[in-house]
Design a binder for these strands. Structure first.
Lengths: 223, 223
DNA sequence: GTTACTCTTGAGCGAGCCCTAAGAATCTCA
DNA sequence: TGAGATTCTTAGGGCTCGCTCAAGAGTAAC
């Protein structure tokens, strides 16, 4: 299978140079001159790797917030550590500063794709349970064919549930993993979001079938 | 859960500096001065991330050839692209050249661990005895195939018993460990919960086989 | 600046669980 | 064997936990 790469780079010369080289290596490459356009292409899905330019820091963050798991290798002209740190924190998987050697770029692309392939043992870009269909690439959810509108947090929570299906998950763990709170006082946040998910996904939210309560321990997703 | 990192670095100063910093960030760190030793530690398993020095190129290759999937972040003094390429090709997941900023190291460590965590569906921890099966991940208990409903406390108590099987456990110890009571007056709480467990798990609750009474001392789980 | 939307928090309420008490049963030792 | 100590069983009151609702803060979109 040919792997598809989205290259976002505003400088035409570089865009063509890098793009051609990647194509020579046998990758499918689409290019885009700017971040906004790139974001739309990326969220439309279908790419195995993104190469956004530094200006795309916010693109990177937005993609992650929407739960998109596509690997991102960030390119930039600047060589400031703080930028690298920022990029990685915002969800980039790797970071390369210009000027860079083409060889190194290719090696990193290869490493990223190899790593991504490991995770895609189960090519579950889509996960289904009951009459619910969750598309992780486009971050869309359907219930019996009809689209269901989830907020970002709801989608992240649902994703985490799906990833850990069958496990009993404590509120604490969910807060740490989904909300990234290190330590939080007692709060009803998780309950409320679970209630919303049930409202949108369960046939009978009062008698949930998918997200069940484990009294005294937390919640468990069965799907 | 604390993430464990293996740091292979022959220069003592750097080894201590980096090690301490990582520990400060909350990671569990083991250090090793040389590649051979490091290889043995790594293949023994249990680490979430490896930080080998460049000299460990062969270590890296060997680990991969043996099918070990632990993430590897390679550190090196040399800044030659060809080395980076080699490192990545040999299976390193990331590559950092000295001198490097500690902040960047930390960010890359974090990114690698986050990425690694995605694929980790915690292994099914199941303990069986007789016709009873206890699944710690889903907090489910089966008796001869039929599900048994335990309350949270009952499950915690059973878990503690299993973890300390063969040991004679006093009521006091159980209260402290399972109930997290610091000091309690005389109470029958433990007895009652043990009785409930026996009711649900034993073939003949009057003649318990798994949770036996040690008269005058406490209880002992045999499974 | 306004509007719409999401996220968080706290209070009220109901359900389910846990602890306690007390009598019955069992065990130990003289 | 019998007395005393220890353990078992049962049931209900009390209390923790989980759900729901609503309001306010925060944020993005226009």
């Amino acid at each position: 299978m040919e792997e598809k790469i989205l290259l976002v780079e505003d400088e035409p010369g570089l865009r063509i140079t890098i793009g051609d080289r990647l194509r020579n290596e046998g990758y499918g490459v689409e290019t885009s001159p700017d971040g906004q356009d790139g974001y739309e292409q990326a969220s439309a899905g279908g790419f195995d790797l993104m190469l956004p330019r530094k200006s795309g820091l916010d693109v990177c963050r937005d993609l992650r917030q929407n739960g998109l798991a596509v690997p991102i290798l960030m390119l930039t002209a600047r060589d400031q550590t703080v930028d690298k740190v920022l990029g990685l924190k915002l969800g980039a998987d790797d970071y390369l500063t210009k000027p860079f050697e083409m060889l190194e770029l290719l090696a990193r692309v290869e490493a990223l794709l190899r790593r991504a392939a490991v995770g895609t043992r189960s090519p579950t870009a889509i996960h289904s349970f009951g009459n619910i269909r969750v598309d992780f690439r486009s971050t869309e959810v359907f219930r019996g064919g009809d689209p269901v509108t989830l907020s970002a947090k709801e989608f992240q929570l649902l994703s985490y549930f799906i990833k850990h299906r069958g496990e009993t998950l404590s509120r604490e763990q969910l807060l740490q993993e989904v909300w990234e709170y290190s330590s939080t006082p007692y709060t009803r946040t998780v309950d409320v979001h679970v209630a919303w998910l049930r409202q949108k996904l369960e046939d009978d939210p009062r008698q949930p079938r998918w997200i069940v309560t484990v009294h005294g321990l937390g919640y468990k997703f069965t799907g």
